[in-house]
Design a binder for these strands. Sequence first.
DNA 1: GTATAATGTTAGATGAATCTAACAAAAAAA
DNA 2: TTTTTTTGTTAGATTCATCTAACATTATAC
Lengths: 218, 218
Amino acid sequence: MHTLAEENYLKALFSLENEHGEVNVNELSKRLGIKMPTVTSMMKKLAANKLVHYESYKPLKLSEKGRKEAALIIRKHRLAEMYLVEKMGFGWEQVHDIAEQIEHIQSAPFFAKMDELLGYPKIDPHGSPIPDKHGKMMWRGYNKLSDCKENETVTIIAVLNTSDDFLKFLNSKQIRLGLVVKVKSAEPFDGSMLLSYEKHPKETLSHLVCERLLVEKT
Amino acid sequence: MHTLAEENYLKALFSLENEHGEVNVNELSKRLGIKMPTVTSMMKKLAANKLVHYESYKPLKLSEKGRKEAALIIRKHRLAEMYLVEKMGFGWEQVHDIAEQIEHIQSAPFFAKMDELLGYPKIDPHGSPIPDKHGKMMWRGYNKLSDCKENETVTIIAVLNTSDDFLKFLNSKQIRLGLVVKVKSAEPFDGSMLLSYEKHPKETLSHLVCERLLVEKT
DNA sequence: GTATAATGTTAGATGAATCTAACAAAAAAA
DNA sequence: TTTTTTTGTTAGATTCATCTAACATTATAC
C-alpha cells in the first residue's frame, strides 16, 4: 500500500497536528530528522496521492484520507505497545522501539487478533487513546499537571513522551498511570512543583516533567 | 544491520542450499521473483560483505558468516510462527505471511521474550527446526512419505511447504503433525499412495503431496 | 520600511534495488 | 564437434528516498 517512508511522514504529520495545529516543513523536517528539501518533495508526492493538502510556502495539512491512514498506523503502534506490555510482560519504557517496527506490518488479522486478545483496549500503556478501526480517536478531558494549582489532587492518566529515558525516570520516582498526587506547591520562578503521593510526601518535579504528565481532577 | 533485500537473499540462499546443495543464479532468481542481473549484482554486494563466496559462472555459496546470519533470520521467522500459533491462536496455514514480516524486526529482547514465553521450542508449527541463538540448526532423521514402502506405519513430523493452499488442503484431509498413517499401497505409475489413518481408512494422496510430508518410522 | 534571519523551494547528485537489452559462457543436443 | 539452449554477466535506464548547494520567499528586528 504505502511505503515505509510515506507511513512515517503521515504519522509525524498527525502527531504534530495534534500537538499544535499548524505544521510547517521545518518542524516536520526536525521531527523526522530529514532535511527540508526531502520533506518538500515527499509532501508533493503525498499531495499527488491526496494524503496531504500542499501549497508552496503554506502550512502543511493532512487530508481526511491522510488523517485516517495516519490514525490507522498509530492504532497499530498503540495496539502493539499494549500487547507487548499486557501479554508479553515488557515495561512501558521498553516498548516504543519495538512497536515502531510492528506498526508497519500489513496484516489485518494480526492486529484484529491482538485487539481481541487485549479485550478491545481504548488506551495504550502510556495513556494515549488507541484510534478505532475507522481511524477515530478520542482524547479524554485532560490537563497538564503543570497547569494545576496548589492543593489540587489529581490522577495521572497519560504521559506525553514515550522515550525510554523519561519513562525510566518516572519509574525511579514510582510514578505511573492511575497514581493520585496532591500539588503541595508550584514554584512560579521555574515552574517546578512540590508533590505528595504514596510513600513520597515531598517530591519535587521540574516543569519539563510536569508538562508531560496529563492528569484528571480526582 | 542488513537491508530488507539483503536479508531476503540470505534466507533464500540458505533454504535453497538446504534443499539441494548447490545453488545457481537462475534458481535464486526464480525463488525470489527477481531478475537474474539483479541477483548477480546483489551477489557481488553480499560477497563484498563476506556473506557469500561469489565467482562468475560458479555456483553460489554462503560463507560461514552468511549462513549464520541467514539461520538467525530463519530463527526469528520460526519463533514468530510458533508464537502466532501457540499464543495468538492462528492456524498453521495463516502464519507464514505474518512471520515473513515479523522476521525483519530488529530487537533481541522481543525474540528472546517470545522464545521464553514459548518455553524454548525446538520446532515450528510446520515441524521445521528452529535454529538456536548461535544459528545452529538440527534436522531430525526424517524420510519423505513418498519414499515409504507398502505396509509401513509412520508418523508425520513435518511439512515441506508452508503455503496457505497446501496447508488448507491438509486441513481438509485432517492431516496434521503427529498423525500416524499406514501406507496401504503405493502406485508405481504416478507415485500416488493409498493411506489409512484415523477416520480415513482409504485416502489417496498424490505424489506431489506425499513428497512434501516428512515422516519418522513409528 | 529596509535589512537580516528564518523558512521553503529548485536543481542536481547519490546510493539502493530494481529493470531491459545485448552480449558471453557453459551445458545440452544434434 | 558444431549448433542450440540455458544460464550468467555487463551496460545502462528507472524509481525511491535521501542529500548539498544555491536561490526564493516570508517573517522578524531594528
